[in-house]
Write a protein that binds this DNA or RNA. Structure first.
Lengths: 171, 171
DNA sequence: CAAGATTGACGAGTCAATCTTG
DNA sequence: CAAGATTGACTCGTCAATCTTG
């Protein structure tokens, strides 16, 4: 840097705190995840949808019946119910999804992919998977990939109990 | 689920695409990172700052001279210059940081922690580090932590060339 | 009343345009 | 003109309140 701003004498205790390697460890995870998300977003947005919108479309296309209750979908995508309502509004306007009233419980709606929505996902996916290879999978050998997967699952078990069963999903 | 929404017959090709395990792999990374961020945020917000604000304060306290140029700080924190301007506005109003005009280049400003800002960081840090132990470090043994670190660095090298040198930072 | 979904008001960040200094 | 920083208009997501159905 340049002009030496008012330097603060750090006590040893203070130094030990702010220099703790665990801070660096989380920082590495966070920075890697967000930079990867950023790299993967380019190809997606070229097709006119945001990363969150693509995640929702992809989860719907991976769902067994191509449909999910709003609340479940919101939980899977890690956004709030109201956030999903608005996101679905945008997708529905573009005829990529529809909401079906659930026959057994008329409070609930089921989000469903339209043919156009499915078509768009299939159009985006090949390039998206290629991107994943280029930016993520391709940076690691088989062993690294295995142990990375194991470690991430261990962490996820802690911070998000009850995600182990379902589908994991997109990025 | 319930009422069998209009089931779509998936072609084998289509099935192979949407079920690709690489999608699951990125999904795992993303979900783990955001769930961890979520877990770590509780303790931080209890002290009246948002996670992004804490990240900026922490980076300033880790910087050699306790000061960073706005542009550099924004890049480190992974937000835009304008985003940082607004964040700094909030922190400055609360007297946690100050902007100093740089003597050698009067276009630039240096973000500096005030004593109150430093005090707040030191107040938050012990609990924050304990949280990291609880939610992240503590979920892994030493070997896992080492290989996780190596794998993440390999990925980061790909998606964010030129982050290797500097400090990594908070979550 | 509780659960599912939506709406209004708001917070926080982005891009494009602007201002100042080199 | 280019770089550093800020501002205006806008998007996206959140919380709290509301409406409907069980």
């Amino acid at each position: 840097l340049s002009g030496r701003p008012p330097t603060h004498k750090r006590s040893p205790t203070e130094q030990a705190l702010v220099a703790d390697e665990r801070l660096t460890a989380v920082g590495l995870l966070m920075e890697t995840a967000s930079s990867l998300a950023n790299a993967l977003s380019c190809h997606i947005v070229e097709h006119g949808v945001s990363p969150s919108e693509f995640e929702v479309l992809l989860r719907l296309s991976r769902s067994p019946d191509s449909g999910l209750r709003m609340a479940d979908l919101a939980a899977q995508a890690g956004i709030s119910a109201s956030g999903l309502t608005r996101l679905m509004d945008r997708l529905e306007q573009r005829r990529l999804v529809t909401r079906l009233t659930c026959s057994t419980d008329r409070r609930g709606l089921t989000a469903v992919l339209t043919p156009a929505g499915r078509k768009l996902v299939l159009k985006i996916l090949p390039g998206h998977i290629a991107d994943i290879d280029q930016w993520y999978t391709g940076a690691l050998d088989a062993d690294q990939l295995t142990s990375l997967d194991r470690a991430l699952r261990a962490v996820r078990r802690r911070v998000r109990p009850g995600a182990e069963a379902g589908a994991d999903g997109p990025g």
